[in-house]
């Protein structure tokens, strides 16, 4: 078996030593550091990107929270405004209702006063008419011409008591 021929051993050992040591130096000094650098750079970039992403995410969340707060505030103030407007309107409505009521009451009073006045004047003119009728009637009935003042007095007595007692 050629492997067991000792004459070939020295040359194999020599070249093995040369190539192996050369390879070791190259790997140790050049190849591995280069690969390690690239791997490390990649890992660093990943970490950086990840950190940036989390920072941006937090910022976005912050903005969202601010927006929410703003919206809630706006909503609350809008509510306030509506409420005050509502109250103002209600107050004004009440005011106008009261004014109207007062006006109506005044008008009713005035109307009642006019009615009373008209009633009074109607009554007084009625008295005159009744006096005339009574004078004519007495004249006709008993042929006596009563004195106008006596007739007026009698009529107003009767009408007065009748007015008091109920409608004449």
């Amino acid at each position: 078996m050629p492997q067991l021929d000792p004459t070939v051993w020295p040359t194999q050992l020599f070249w093995l030593a040369v190539t192996f040591i050369a390879l070791y130096l190259i790997v140790w000094r050049v190849a591995l550091p280069r690969i390690a650098d690239v791997l490390e750079a990649r890992q660093r970039k990943l970490d950086d990107d990840l950190k940036k992403a989390t920072a941006l995410k937090e910022e976005a969340e912050q903005i969202l929270a601010d927006y929410e707060k703003l919206r809630a505030d706006a909503q609350a103030s809008a509510h306030e405004v509506l409420k005050t407007a509502n109250d103002a309107l209600k107050a004004e409505a009440e005011q106008q209702t009261a004014a109207l009521a007062a006006k109506l009451a005044a008008q009713t009073e005035e109307a009642e006063a006019r009615i009373a006045a008209a009633k009074a004047s109607a009554l007084s003119s009625l008295e005159g008419t009744v006096s005339e009728v009574v004078m004519a009637a007495t004249e006709k009935l008993i042929g006596v011409k009563a004195g106008a003042q006596e007739v007026d007095r009698a009529v107003s007595d009767v009408m007065g008591s009748q007015a008091k007692g109920g409608g004449g």
Binding site: V8, T11, Q12, W15, T19, L23, I26, V30, A31
Partner: peptide, 23 residues
């Protein structure tokens, strides 16, 4: 000791290939 043999050739080829592959 320094005879360049087929074995030596393969060893050198291995060295060259690995270096090329990595670098």
């Amino acid at each position: 000791l320094v005879t360049f043999t087929n074995s030596s050739l393969m060893m050198v080829a291995t060295l060259v290939l690995i270096t090329a592959f990595l670098i």
